Computed example of a mutant assay.
Amino acid sequence: MIKKFSTLIAIAILCLSTTACGNGGTVNSEAALASGTKNIANPAENIFSSGQPSRDEFAALAELGVKHIVNLRPQPEQDWDEAAYVSSLGMQYHSIPVADAGDITPANAQKLKQTLQSIGADPALVHCASGNRVGALIALQHGLESGNVDAAIAEGKRWGLTRLEPVVRDALTK
């Protein structure tokens, strides 16, 4: 309870000290990064990647102006109805189930790319349990487009890639 309260106070202070807190499509990155969300990063303008947010963290992100949630966790990993909760906060929910390394595929990387393109400039959060699958799909897509494996891995790491790096490298060097 104290952590939740202190996180919300920190976000409120950051919002009051800037003009970009949930105002028409721009999210205060400092406030979002202070939300307490596991492994949160801001790898692209108005796009955040993270591990699984709590209900309180989703609420804080909605207050900051995040409009879209892209969840890469499959339903069996969830023990609550994230889609309904996110929708109740006024955010749009998108699901691309990525269960394990076998789902780090060009098709899923393309689905994530298309989802982010459809969201456009609206603020969004892409998450899985830790951020690793987010980074893996981003790295795979980047590598498929650029042909540069090392640059793809570096980009994936900005988005949360960790232990799935060998899977991405393997997929890009076949």
Rank of each mutant, 00 (worst) to 15 (best):
S54D: 11
L16E: 11
H94Q: 09
V126P: 00
V86I: 06
D56Q: 09
N108S: 10
A124D: 10
H127R: 14
P43A: 11
S118F: 10
S49F: 02
A109M: 06
A101W: 08
A31K: 07
S95L: 07
S17T: 15
Q52L: 15
I69M: 11
E77V: 00
T115Y: 10
R55I: 06
S49W: 08
A84I: 00
T26L: 05
E63L: 15
R55G: 13
P97Y: 05
A109I: 03
G22C: 15
G36S: 12
Q78S: 13
G25C: 02
A84H: 12
G24Q: 12
A31F: 02
V66Q: 01
L16D: 15
G90E: 06
Q110T: 04
N39S: 05
I119R: 04
G24V: 08
K67C: 01
D122C: 03
G51Y: 07
K38Q: 14
G90P: 09
T26H: 15
A121R: 13
S49D: 04
I69S: 04
E57P: 01
L89I: 05
K38C: 00
L125D: 04
Q92L: 14
G25K: 07
Y93Q: 10
V70R: 03
V27K: 07
T19H: 15
N108V: 07
D81R: 02
Q114T: 10
R55Q: 15
L61D: 05
V86T: 09
L116R: 06
Q75N: 10
I96W: 07
P74G: 10
A99R: 11
A101M: 03
A62F: 11
Q114Y: 10
